[in-house]
Design a protein around this nucleic acid. Sequence first.
DNA 1: CCGCTATGAATGAACG
DNA 2: CGTTCATTCATAGCGG
Lengths: 217, 217
Amino acid sequence: MEDQGQDPNSPTNGSERNEPVRSRWTPKPEQILILESIFNSGMVNPPKDETVRIRKLLEKFGSVGDANVFYWFQNRRSRSRRRQRQMQASLQQRNQQEQGASGGNSGGGGAIHYESSSSTTTPPHVLGYEADSVAPSFASCPSSYLMGSSSSSACVGMLMGDHHDHHHGHVVDNLFPVSGAQMGFSEIDQGSSVTPILCPEDTSNLHFQSGKNACPI
Amino acid sequence: MEDQGQDPNSPTNGSERNEPVRSRWTPKPEQILILESIFNSGMVNPPKDETVRIRKLLEKFGSVGDANVFYWFQNRRSRSRRRQRQMQASLQQRNQQEQGASGGNSGGGGAIHYESSSSTTTPPHVLGYEADSVAPSFASCPSSYLMGSSSSSACVGMLMGDHHDHHHGHVVDNLFPVSGAQMGFSEIDQGSSVTPILCPEDTSNLHFQSGKNACPI
DNA sequence: CCGCTATGAATGAACG
DNA sequence: CGTTCATTCATAGCGG
């Protein structure tokens, strides 16, 4: 908790031209897209080998370490799970709160992830705590493990195409071979209908930081 | 934790009585009072169960979700801590820290710790903004981080009494039983010898909108 | 009308 | 794996 006093980071860089100097990794839109695609394609917990590969892929869009990828997936899993739980809880609970209806203000708040047992959960709207990104359209790929390269590759392909950074090239099509990692889970879809797999405007869905960060694509 | 999936739109029914649709939760004075009382009473990090209970309580004064409560506590804690830290730092400038610099790395082992999670650029990053504002008076007498006391309940009692919303009844008096939660005890307690503890005018301290304060109670 | 500060929310990183 | 800390983003709200 309080032991980490900032890691030395890697001063050896200079690769990235204009980085606003951030203390922590801030995934670029493209990176997030890739990560989510992978996650949604079923690989929720990539083994180390895969992690490395993914990192290499992501690196084309910006500096990133294996640890970042690892953490990303961890957080992602955790959150998805939580959100699901929360959602279930709220749905099933449908607790009728007879609050005095005093004031009744602010609608922003979200809900909770506590499955809880007694009492209410979740107010009228929104989702749980750790909800991560909300169903990105492009990421809506069903958890079918079979899809493999068809759709996701397309997504990434498009993305790559845009950038067309032909440094190595081979990585792209070999994106996630889904080498028997552990995909299995399907995160109950967002409820809404399954959106078309292709991603038209993912960026809009992914709320990236405004202004400050200009993606170098 | 960090969850929360704030959804930008309100799907359910868009009409709350008198709500200009706020994008984010804005706690009402009474809610803040309650929250701070709880916080000051020592419960700086309420477990889920407690959070839910608190939310229920707060809901009487306005819509709020568990996540909001959760975030509130998180931010509060974080802030208190940081403020203290900077205060201390400022006070004792001649603090010298030594880096252990353990040369050999542990190498493989139990923890997955990837290599350093370096990301982009090196962060000199010294001072953090976000200077927390001053401490509210009644909040200044907590048993958690700065001191110990036991009168916060009085505050809440008063508040509750005023409202007398005995819909469920049990919630109110059972406010914070401090059921073995984690009341962090202390950190530096220096100074504040006496501390009258009693909170005289909490409301005044909380800078609410003076003018248009439509109190639902 | 534009700026600031306060604060809620989101997310990466790490502990247990 | 779940939880917690730390940092950052986004926005409400008042002041100039």
